[in-house]
């Protein structure tokens, strides 16, 4: 590398950037949790047996999915307080959880859906034959079989979300990217802090990607052997 790289700046910026990492990780998990719960909501909304409603909800999901999360964040942070009647001011962290959470819940809803559709039809019929209530059907029969195969996909989304969380720095959540930018603005040195951020992301996301890969292989082996899943209740909830 040439002379523009400065190790002093690097070590000067490191502690400041690291300060933001708690917020970045915290925000990731908060968004993820929100998306996991909200994803279920989409599933149940889509199962309402009214055709027109079903159509509307499908297109709402499509709308949320195909518009940029950045604009959605701006909408929630800047525009929501101005909406009459239901509008209220939200702090940056909550806006980010809502914005990114809702955006990714549509993806996670799809993951759930594919899991639920993957459950054999006979299982539904059997549970009806055994006189299970609707609640029992879902909690005892369908979900325990639908969720575990989806876990690797859900894990992938955790990593994807982790990489989208820096978007929140644009509305003032002080994560690592925000820290790096403000260090850059103070000292007029963007190179080192931004490199630190890139390295941090790599350090955190690469091992988790490998972990998810292993999990996926393990799952595949398990489901190849036997389709019946034991002890999986509450694996995600």
């Amino acid at each position: 590398m040439n002379g523009n790289w400065n190790w002093d700046t690097f070590f000067d910026a490191l502690p400041m950037v690291l300060e933001g990492i708690g917020i970045t990780i915290g925000l990731t998990f908060a968004c993820y949790l929100f998306a996991l719960i909200f994803g279920f909501l989409w599933i149940f909304l889509r199962r309402i047996p009214v055709k027109s409603l079903n159509w509307i909800i499908t297109w709402i999901m499509e709308f949320i999915r195909s518009t940029p999360p950045l604009v959605q964040l701006f909408f929630i942070f800047y525009a929501w307080p101005m909406v009459p009647v239901i509008g209220m001011a939200l702090d940056p962290f909550t806006s980010a959880v809502l914005g990114l959470g809702i955006h990714f819940s549509t993806y996670i809803g799809e993951v759930y859906r594919s899991g639920i559709e993957g459950v054999d039809k006979g299982q539904w019929e059997a549970s009806t034959a055994l006189n299970f209530s609707i609640r029992q059907k879902w909690t005892k029969i369908i979900l325990p079989q639908a969720i575990p195969p989806a876990i690797p996909m859900l894990g992938n989304y955790l990593i994807i979300m982790f990489k989208e969380v820096p978007l929140a720095s644009t509305i003032g959540v002080v994560g690592i990217l925000h820290m790096a930018n403000s260090y850059g603005a103070q000292h007029w040195a963007y190179l080192e802090p931004l490199t630190i951020v890139a390295i941090l992301f790599l350090i955190l996301s690469y091992p988790s990607a490998i972990l998810i890969n292993k999990l996926e292989k393990k799952m595949n082996r398990r489901f190849d052997k036997k389709a019946i899943v034991k002890n999986s209740k509450g694996a995600v909830m």
């Binding site: 982790f162 720095s169 931004l194 890139a198 992301f201 790599l202 996301s205 690469y206 990607a209």
Partner: peptide, 8 residues
Amino acid sequence: RGTSLIVQ
């Protein structure tokens, strides 16, 4: 793939 687009 390991770092986020906005950082890149």
